[in-house]
């Protein structure tokens, strides 16, 4: 069951014209405004840019938002960005939800404006319905082993191992063959400097 006192903010992104060219973002914003528990629905030109993020933070503070939905690109791209943003405004980052209306909508239905706009509205509604059930979460912390494994002792692997080691990290350089060197050791000279490869 979702809790009482939900105050959801929805931010609909134009992504310049990437979304707004196909999806009627203003219609989506208005639609979101009418959804239960949504207390603020805002349009942005670029939500991920600094002004867009500042606006989210301001709304969280001024409207006491306790859930945030951003309708923009894929969560695989900008979920970390926006999670960080809501966290800075004092909201647990697990209370943030994203609606993908770019990769999964405007970019793949560019010929069908009505269909894309409908899909965007539905996607926002689904995100809001999901957001009602989100709970704050605490992340566990784990220590980091300060050592790296480089697999492959060709030119790239050797360079990586040296850079890592010079930075102060312990490195295991694993090579399948009896010697490091890779293909480059088989070359006579290399371009563009025409010097020796070993």
């Amino acid at each position: 069951m979702s809790e009482d006192g939900l105050r959801i903010g929805v931010f609909v992104c134009d992504c310049g014209l990437n979304i707004a060219n196909t999806v009627d973002t203003e219609a989506v914003r208005q639609y979101a405004e009418g959804l239960p528990d949504v207390v603020a629905s805002v349009g942005n030109r670029y939500t991920c840019a600094d002004p867009g993020q500042e606006e989210i933070k301001r709304y969280i503070r001024e409207n006491d938002l306790n859930r945030v939905v951003v309708a923009s690109c894929s969560p695989r791209l900008h979920e970390p960005t926006f999670r960080h943003c809501v966290e800075e405004a004092g909201l647990n980052k697990y209370l943030f939800e994203m609606a993908n209306i770019r990769e999964h909508c405007s970019w793949v239905h560019s010929e069908d404006h009505a269909g894309a706009t409908q899909k965007a509205k539905d996607t926002v509604r689904m995100a809001v319905d999901r957001a009602r059930h989100l709970k704050p979460q605490i992340e566990a912390e784990v220590p980091v082993t300060d050592a790296a494994l480089v697999i492959g002792g060709g030119v790239a692997g050797i360079q990586a191992a040296l850079d890592l080691a010079d930075t102060g990290h312990h490195v295991y350089l694993v090579e399948k063959e009896p010697s490091i060197g890779g293909i480059m050791a088989q070359l006579d000279k290399t371009f563009p400097t025409m010097d020796c490869s070993i």
């Binding site: 784990v142 082993t145 990290h169 312990h170 295991y172 694993v174 090579e175």
Partner: peptide
């Protein structure tokens, strides 16, 4: 190449192959 063989912080393992990887970022 020589530098990689000599570097005190590089442990060179030739004739070697990775067989199994467990764990996750920070702790493989």
């Amino acid at each position: 190449m020589m530098d990689a063989g000599r570097h005190p912080r590089i442990e060179l393992m030739t004739l070697s192959e990775v067989e199994e990887v467990n764990g996750y970022i920070g702790n493989f």
